[in-house]
């Protein structure tokens, strides 16, 4: 398989090249990292329900809707991406696309482990360290291809992410921030240094070589670059971004697999939020009482 180890690329290039390869029906593995931050919606995310659009505009955070699944993600230069494109007729690819994740995620898990971080697969598509999510992954059929994409978190801006997501009232933001910190982790939490792009990319390439066989270093040709440029216009266009998506009766924000911050439909006050971990309510937040004080107490205990 061809390997496109792109290094640092612009924010839109970090999404558009795997889309371009997919539409061209050309298999390949891309490793890259964006030079600046952006917000990336899943194909069926509803822009107005999910994103604090005003905040993103104010902070000049661009938006892009990818053609793979999963939810809204905040992406920046503290993340390294691995993106695999396979033709739909590739015999490696199971009909049940989710069953390919263990194979696809093995190199990323090995990368964490080489750094001494005990990462493991949390089915279907999360990588976790001691129960905390450290990598987000998604897949989608694009053209005649299937794209699998994921990231390694060197560090994460929880504050920024908690402001990018739409919440019904500003008081929920610290609760969201805290919930993400409780259920997510990054390489920075485990090492006394943050590895550079080259170190992580090298480990990923080694891992993918073990699972895919020999990788052939390649450079993007003009055809891919031109298609990617056209896709940039499409994937960031206002019509595409505003496509109708999943609507929610109550606001529900996914933190990790099985973990949600959600409005409590059982209670009359819509201002009550619960942190739900696979059906178990871990914490609730209602700002009709002295909840900020309570929240601070909960946070100080964790």
């Amino acid at each position: 398989m061809k390997l496109y180890n792109l290094g640092r690329v612009s924010w839109w290039e970090s999404q558009c090249y795997y889309h371009a390869l997919s539409y061209l029906g050309r298999e390949g593995l891309i490793i890259c990292s964006p030079t600046s931050a952006y917000v990336c919606l899943g194909l069926h995310d509803d822009l107005k329900s999910e994103i604090a659009v005003d905040y993103c505009q104010k902070k000049n955070i661009p938006l892009l809707r990818r053609e793979t699944g999963g939810g809204v993600v905040y992406l920046d230069s503290n993340q390294v991406f691995y993106q695999m494109v396979l033709r739909r007729d590739n015999p490696l690819l199971p009909l049940q696309r989710g069953r390919f994740y263990p194979y696809f995620l093995k190199p990323a898990i090995l990368t964490y482990r080489k750094l001494g971080i005990p990462a493991q697969l949390h089915a279907p598509a999360d990588i976790t360290v001691k129960g905390r999510k450290c990598s987000g992954n998604a897949a989608g059929d694009i053209g005649e291809s299937v794209a699998y994409v994921g990231n390694i978190l060197l560090d994460f801006d929880y504050e920024r992410m908690s402001r990018v997501l739409r919440i019904p009232c500003p008081e929920v933001q610290p609760f969201l921030n805290w919930s993400m910190q409780l259920y997510m982790t990054t390489i920075k939490d485990w090492l006394d240094y943050i590895p550079g792009y080259q170190e992580i990319a090298g480990m990923l390439v080694e891992g993918f070589s073990q699972t895919l066989g020999e990788l052939y270093p390649a450079e993007l040709d003009l055809e891919v670059i031109e298609v990617a440029a056209k896709l940039y216009t499409k994937l960031t266009g206002s019509k595409w971004l505003s496509l109708p998506g999943r609507k929610q009766q109550q606001r529900r924000i996914k933190i990790a697999e099985g973990v949600y911050l959600e409005e409590d439909a059982q209670m009359e006050e819509r201002s009550t939020f619960a942190l739900n971990d696979n059906g178990e309510v871990m914490a609730t937040f209602s700002f009709t009482d002295k909840s900020l004080y309570q929240l601070q107490q909960i946070m100080s205990q964790t």
């Binding site: 069926h44 699944g69 989608g140």
Partner: peptide, 25 residues
């Protein structure tokens, strides 16, 4: 989601999309 009533669609063309877990088709 699918395209709306009244649209003409050719065989093997895209008529909508499905999302299941971490995959979109």
């Amino acid at each position: 989601d699918t395209i709306d009533k009244g649209n003409y669609i050719k065989k093997l063309e895209d008529a909508g999309s499905v999302e299941a877990g971490k995959w979109v088709g």
